[in-house]
Design a protein around this nucleic acid. Sequence first.
DNA 1: CTGAAAGCGCTAACAG
DNA 2: CTGTTAGCGCTTTCAG
Lengths: 335, 335
Amino acid sequence: MVGEILGREVRVTIDDVARAAGVSRQTVSRAMNGKGEISAATRRRVLATIEELDYRPSVFARGMRTQRGGTLGLILSDIANPFFPAVARGVFDAAAARGSSVVVHNTDAHAGRESAAARDVLERGADGVIGFFEALADEDLTEVHRRLPLVVADRRAPEPGVASVSSDFATGTRLAVEHLHARGHRRLGMLDGAVGVDHVRRHAFTDAAAPGSPVVTGPPTLTGGAAAADQLLAEHPAVTALFAFNDLMAVGAVRALRERGRRVPEDCAVVGYDDLTLAADLDPPLTTVHTDKYELGRTLVEVLDDVVRARRDGSAPGVAPHRLLPATLVVRRSG
Amino acid sequence: MVGEILGREVRVTIDDVARAAGVSRQTVSRAMNGKGEISAATRRRVLATIEELDYRPSVFARGMRTQRGGTLGLILSDIANPFFPAVARGVFDAAAARGSSVVVHNTDAHAGRESAAARDVLERGADGVIGFFEALADEDLTEVHRRLPLVVADRRAPEPGVASVSSDFATGTRLAVEHLHARGHRRLGMLDGAVGVDHVRRHAFTDAAAPGSPVVTGPPTLTGGAAAADQLLAEHPAVTALFAFNDLMAVGAVRALRERGRRVPEDCAVVGYDDLTLAADLDPPLTTVHTDKYELGRTLVEVLDDVVRARRDGSAPGVAPHRLLPATLVVRRSG
DNA sequence: CTGAAAGCGCTAACAG
DNA sequence: CTGTTAGCGCTTTCAG
């Protein structure tokens, strides 16, 4: 087998290619990286030789010079929340298309883990980072941005120079509240996720719902939603509709409601956010705000690419791209 | 800020540490890697200096010598299937505990993507790979194993020397079938996932169910399950219970059944496999086979560690560890 | 127990 | 358009 002796791998190096193609190493480098001038004929020949020898440049040797490892960091808070895998799929596909691998870090929305993840990604010479940062302060984001192309996901950028992509939470939340009002609900409550620094959903809820509408905060998980719903209903028994930070909390709320003998939606309506794949198959089918999560993932990589390119071509520290993905309401049975 | 000048990072190198500590670079290397003899006092002093200067060895320079990058590859077929994130969480946590980062590859069970992923992981100098390989042939797995510590997940190892961890599919499947029999069902059908080469679940089903029980194959997804159920029921209308390859197919089957006006479980029972987080909240709550997915993830990393260690300490090419995780039936309403 | 020398495979900068 | 020179930061010999 090529490049192998007695079961022990022997690296095919750039020198082997150079020798075989009858050129210098530099020319081989140029041929594969498309940098510098090189005649079409030479390049073709070199590329053919590369193919033939099955040469793969060493990530390490290259990284040593360039400080770039052809990876891309994806930092998120909870891979077990189906929202993130849906986004990740878009990220993986887009990353694969641009030839990058993705290193994923799960932070549990813990500030220490978030900065450790960022640092790790940095040290590995990632081309850039996509971050769902929930706990890190704005200054820290800015610091990450200074060192590495960064795209902030589902959160306001800490400063205009930092790119961001997120669901249009304000619209989505407003849609949910208006729908509940249209259904005749007058006393709404919100189950907010105890993460992030933006609180866009909460503010939008507060704006759209009647003054003084209660908001209870908890972890953005099933059990967090159940506990928050319990607390909210205990303190505000007159509430007839709940808007949850995300679908997981919404499902937790449904569980809690039923355990208290409340029917959903008859006694209390529930609306979620995210529109997880299984939302339509739940009992009751979940009314929720939909955002295209795969598209979010793809967009994140696309924007990151813009940032990388901008930085390479003379780092014009102007206003970075900020994209808002449409949010629409999907009415099912729960609210 | 340390190591920074005018917003431009300046690497703290091993030489800086050596100089500051008044030793040579090798001594620094020894101090951090615990290799070679070194006096406790020197080591302490060097370690303190490292701390003080916030020195982080370059992944690339180190990788260049060692061919190892401190990462770990996780290759899976569909991150959007909640089964995988649940496992991934265990993998991430265990990897973090051992100081590794995880690069994740999504393959869609496509042979080309699976081998590309393996190759990529290899080139990045991963310490090892955890692979849910669905499409790759046994020889290819063996080849991967020859080059890199490998643990095969949810699949029989291609040879005794390759480690594996998987759910006890045989028992889980038997439990499901027996339960259906106990409920009085006589005509069972199976919705098999069109992936993998093992077909443990299918064989176990064929063994446990009545001879000639129909099996229809499709992609292990929601729509795959729906289509498979449609086909199976069209060809075998007398079937009163369906055992699905996984929960996603089971949910798809429920959808299809209802669209044909069949009630679940009254007209046709459905049993899944995996016990996804939301299984209990579905309509109807899904009867399914449970395996501890987080534990699977943790175990995978643990076994990988054993393999790595074994290979380092003189590669005794004996019988690698093979672990089977318990599978239990969770009876809910769907079957 | 510690230091000096050598080189991993690659690309940037400069010649030609 | 192509080749030569010079390291990147680290670990692995091999001396001392």
